[in-house]
């Protein structure tokens, strides 16, 4: 085993260990905010593992999307909700057997994948070897050249979603006083301020007649 290989193995081991520990922390932490922070840590570690596997684009996206957007949203939710820890932990013992069954089932399913060949599955082409083509470039070529057509349809799908959401929720109710920015911008000083001479010429002296 070369030194470089050993280094990669060592890096993998380190980040994998931290990943497992932080994943445990997510479950075990008493404070929901701490759990969310542990989740962010585990996302970072998983991203590093992906980069080690040669999927650098997915690693970056994991950090940008999950840590940058989803987790921030989740933290907001956690901080805004008034969570009573005692209530959440109540019934843990009662549900533990069911949870154990679910966990065992999941473990079995994950293990079963390795023996799934006899179902008649065609073994798929192996993933691109790291180094033949940069992962980002490969994904880009796939999305924007080979699969441009479905990609554009998916874009239309999102557009329809946006339009549908606005059509179904936006109301233009009569009689509601709301700002009209273009009218505000178009306004001229002459139409807002009228300079009035309090003492027009030709009127009798100061203070008026009755003064």
């Amino acid at each position: 085993m070369t030194a470089a290989h050993l280094l990669v193995e060592g890096v993998f081991g380190f980040f994998a260990t931290v990943l497992v520990i932080s994943a445990l922390g997510v479950v075990v932490a008493r404070n929901p905010v701490h759990a969310a922070l542990f989740l962010i840590l585990s996302f970072f570690n998983a991203a590093v593992l992906w980069v080690l596997l040669g999927a650098e684009f997915l690693g970056i996206v994991l950090v940008l999307v999950y840590v940058g957007a989803v987790m921030v949203l989740l933290l907001f939710v956690v901080m805004m909700l008034d969570i009573d820890l005692v209530v959440i932990r109540r019934g843990f013992v009662r549900h533990a057997p069911l949870a154990a069954v679910v966990a065992l089932l999941l473990a079995f399913e994950i293990g079963y994948v390795f023996w799934a060949r006899h179902l008649g599955l065609v073994s798929l082409a192996p993933p691109l070897r790291p180094g033949t083509l940069p992962n980002t470039r490969a994904l880009g070529l796939r999305l924007y050249r080979d699969d441009l057509y479905p990609f554009e349809i998916a874009g239309f799908l999102l557009l329809v979603g946006v339009v549908a959401a606005i059509v179904l929720t936006l109301t233009h109710r009569e009689g509601v006083r709301r700002q009209d920015p273009s009218a505000q911008v178009r306004v001229e000083p002459a139409r807002r301020i009228r300079l009035v001479d309090p003492f027009p010429k030709g009127t009798p002296g100061k203070g008026g007649e009755g003064g």
Binding site: D147, P150, I153, L157, V160, A164, V167, L168
Partner: peptide, 22 residues
């Protein structure tokens, strides 16, 4: 892939149209 995307585009438009008169 394209069959599914086309079908969803069609269905999503119809969902919105059916509910368009609030």
């Amino acid at each position: 892939l394209t069959l599914y995307l086309g079908l969803e585009l069609l269905a999503l438009s119809l969902y919105a149209l059916i509910a368009i008169d609030r």
